[in-house]
Amino acid sequence: MASKQVLGIFKTADDAALATDRLKEAGFSAQDYQVLTGAPYPEGAFGEEIPKHRLFAFPFFGAAVGFTVAILVTAGTQISYPLVTGGKPILAIPPMAIITYEGTMLGAIIMTIIGVIFESRLPRPFTGLYDTRITEGYIGVALKCPDDRVQAADLVFRQSGAEDVKHEE
């Protein structure tokens, strides 16, 4: 059966928390809804599941790539045009270490940023059911439910004190 989104807009966080309780009572699971807020709340404040992520793998991968590229560039350029300067060896490790360090860090940062965006499930071309009041202090509870339960969800939201309930067209 096709599913639709229902978005309840709540004026207070307490009401939103109540709504998530009632959703669970009505047989919805924590995976079915998301609490949308305009600012970060302490984790688990709405009884939601703590999301798993693999962000910490990204900087390590980026660092490894950056390190390799930097070593190849610094070693390669020195070997392919071996010109002794200042009595230093052709493969002079301290200067290579400096550039390699920068390369490693650059790789780590770039991959971390990619990781943050990817793990945040962005970019998302279509925002989905949304309400601009969320960024001004209202709390949204976005529920994904089967077509035949939309009315039930609507009722749960309204009974929990929703200011407004929106349905996906």
């Binding site: 998301q34 609490v35 949308l36 970060p40 992520h53 945040s120 499930r121 998302r124 071309p125 925002t127």
Partner: peptide, 19 residues
Amino acid sequence: LGWRGYPRQWRLQIIAGFL
């Protein structure tokens, strides 16, 4: 980028700040 502000996004945002 289609930001909605759900817990996963906020969590990543906070961790990203530290990391």
